[in-house]
Write a protein that binds this DNA or RNA. Sequence first.
DNA 1: CCATGGCCTGTGGT
DNA 2: AACCACAGGCCAT
Length: 280
Amino acid sequence: MQKNRTINVENSINSGQVFLWKRNGDYWYGINGQDILRVDKNGIINSFQNSKVDFFRKNDNLDDIIKSVSKDKTVRRALKQYSGLRILRQDPFQCLISFIVSSNSNIQKIKMSLEKLSKKFGVKAKYENEEFFLFPKAEKLAKASINEIKSCGVGYRAKFINEAAKMILFKKIDFEFLKNCNYHETKENIRTIPGVGNKVADCVMLFSLEKLEAFPLDRWMIRVLEKYYSNKFQIDTTTITEKQYDVLHEKIVKHFGPYAGYSQQFLFKMERENYQKKWL
DNA sequence: CCATGGCCTGTGGT
DNA sequence: AACCACAGGCCAT
């Protein structure tokens, strides 16, 4: 008996996972690496490159996952309220650059920067009579100058972007290999990329490297933990140190289980909606 | 190991 | 109008 199978496309796209998406009539259009995806309201995908990427992770067993993470009242409320919200399986390079850009920023600005990067360094493509810019390839960003990258409004993150691209180009980082590594190995590896701390690493792992136990702890999730989970996870300081992050993550996985990342996405969505924060 | 401050830049508030 | 606080962190000290 399968339940919970409907996908809420709107909520999934508007949940802080992706930035290069726009609605046009009945469809959402988005850039995923070197591909353009067109999604209808049921989550049916048409792909520019005819790729068969399972972007909404339809093959995940949502019944099992929801059962697994339904550990307390708060998360059950979020699961119910935003049912149909999915973790999106993204292109790893785009995801990496997106979350390097995201640090100390906000959604509108992140989107603007990524659009500028794509327009300046990405390939122009025509899909359904409309122009798009694919996400820049690593090689292009690796060979760009810092100032060229800065012209996209990314500020001090420009050199991080350039370094990250070089590490991909020179295969210091191999995403396909990392998909088959465990959480800790993967995290250790991608944290060698400049601009990638605990939070960014968890986002990249959850959204593009198949690590569903990754549980990104940003200021919103810290707020959630303080508000609803103060008895379970104690947070005593305002700035969370590296050690505390690790300890906290361990407790969180002990509580929510191996699909903790799914619970994070629902709780994050809920809290931002409570504050009526804007999305794309 | 922990604490602090600085950082590009666009936006919204005073 | 000019200025300031702030934003889905990270890094060097």
